[in-house]
């Protein structure tokens, strides 16, 4: 099993609903966020191209944040979901330094926090909150090993990219371009 997400940058309008849904679902403290939206403008006027990316932890297959954690608080759950056990985290910050995507932050209570792919929902057979709430249906979540899952179907006939693959982390967010 390998959970992954596909993000359709052609459909995303940058409304930010996924960000708010995550903050509500996961009680993210005020001023913090586990997902965010990047608007990327390329070129010079009048030939501009625009891309909206809803970004979050890439739940990397070769995750440096898990490797560098001295206590094992950062670990990999079933299906490759990378999470942090709060009561094991000492807040050393090593994992924050190790993430090429700046996907982690130090929670005001001291431990490190980040996107969990809504593990608590996924375990109940639901989709992550951001996926469920997206009004344009541009987020696709599921098991890559299952050819009929939402995510497998989404990346099947489309061109996609991952972010900074040269960082060697084998990221599992697929941006449809």
């Amino acid at each position: 099993m390998r959970y992954a997400m596909a993000i359709d940058t052609k459909k995303c309008v940058g409304c930010g609903d996924c960000v708010v849904a995550c903050q509500t679902e996961n009680n993210v403290p005020h001023g913090y966020c586990r997902d965010w939206i990047v608007e990327s403008v390329d070129g010079t006027y009048p030939s501009l191209s625009l891309e909206f990316r809803s970004e979050r932890c890439n739940h990397c297959d070769n995750s440096p944040c898990v490797r560098c954690c001295p206590t094992g608080a950062s670990h990999i759950e079933e299906g490759g979901i990378v999470t942090v056990t709060h009561h094991k985290c000492i807040g050393c910050g090593a994992c924050i330094q190790s993430c090429p995507y700046d996907a982690r932050y130090s929670h005001p209570e001291g431990y490190v926090d980040k996107c969990t792919f809504c593990l608590h929902r996924v375990q109940k057979g639901q989709s992550p909150a951001c996926v469920d709430v997206c009004p344009t249906r541009c987020l696709h979540f599921g098991d890559l090993d299952d050819p009929n899952s939402d995510v497998s179907l989404a990346i099947k006939d489309r061109k996609w990219k991952t972010l900074a693959p040269e960082a060697g982390t084998d990221p599992q967010l697929y941006f449809l371009t």
Binding site: G31, S40, D42
Partner: peptide
């Protein structure tokens, strides 16, 4: 190339 956080992101220390 210009990249912007349109959802607003200003996490302390990050």
């Amino acid at each position: 190339k210009e990249e912007l956080f349109v959802s607003g992101r200003n996490i302390p220390n990050i």
